[in-house]
């Protein structure tokens, strides 16, 4: 009998604690599939963040480190500099990466640290119960902006891919979405490229995954998927921003 579907070896046989309709599971699975397909599992170290995916080390079947809030890129830098033979990735949410960990991600990218950062952008702080994130959409209601995000007060949502792509240091920067099958297929391709660049010791790689948070958005899973389409993707274009191959094309100087 031919196996056409199975749990990737890089995923542990454990049920997750994620909410119904949350796309963390999809992102986990894509990473696991890619690591299996590239044969990297046995030399991978995942850095899990503070946020909903704080327990992801229970769900992955490879070595992991738990980082403090926002510092995963520094932790990854430490591992990668000390043990360049290991495959290292960070898995970070929007509060973790784009707020408290902004300095760490920007500098790791700018140094061209050869690890992969997977950025889960669901426009809200999940674990702490739905507060405003740096990627919260204008007008979006959260527990700390009950009248909706007021851009006059707190500025516009930060577009991390655009920001990181502006760095001169070569890198791979792509935004994908993991809420619908057609996007998921492309997301996997981007993740595979990202890890391949790392395995080739080529460059820093960054994959932003537009994700859902039905619980904190106050939407049904189906409505949440629509909200990504209608609200997030127009503001956060899903595309490649930078590859080592296209280096220099976007330079302003």
């Amino acid at each position: 009998m031919k196996t056409i579907f199975k749990r990737p070896e890089a995923l542990a046989e454990t049920p997750t604690h994620y909410c119904p309709g949350c796309t963390h599971g999809v992102a986990h699975r894509l990473i696991a599939e890619v690591l299996d397909e590239l044969g990297l599992r046995e030399r991978t170290v995942g850095i899990v963040p503070v946020g909903c995916s704080v327990l992801a080390f229970n769900y992955f079947n490879f070595d992991c480190q738990e980082a403090s809030h926002g510092r995963a890129p520094a932790v990854a830098t430490g591992i990668k500099r000390g043990r360049p033979d290991l495959i290292v990735f960070t898995y970070q949410g929007d509060g973790d990466l784009a707020s408290i960990g902004m300095a760490e991600i920007v500098h790791a990218a700018n140094r061209g640290e050869k690890f992969t950062a997977v950025f889960i952008n669901n426009a809200v702080y999940g674990m702490t119960g739905g507060q405003m994130a740096p990627t919260t959409m204008p007008g979006q209601v959260t527990t700390t902006c009950p009248a909706g995000r007021d851009v006059e007060q707190v500025g516009y949502p930060i577009r991390m891919c655009e920001l990181l792509a502006s760095l001169r240091t070569p890198g791979f920067v792509e935004r994908v979405a993991v809420h619908q099958p057609k996007y998921i297929i492309k997301a996997k391709r981007a993740l595979k490229k990202a890890f391949q660049y790392q395995a080739d010791n080529r460059c820093f790689s960054f994959v932003e995954c537009l994700s859902t948070c039905p619980t904190n958005w106050g939407l049904t899973p189906l409505k949440a998927v629509q909200w990504v389409d209608e609200t997030m993707i127009p503001y956060y274009p899903v595309k490649n921003f930078k590859s080592p191959e296209t280096e220099g094309e976007g330079d302003a100087d």
Partner: peptide
């Protein structure tokens, strides 16, 4: 960042 680099490297 430095102290977290230590955490990562020592952890490895």
């Amino acid at each position: 960042a430095v102290s977290n680099m230590l955490y990562g490297a020592a952890g490895a």
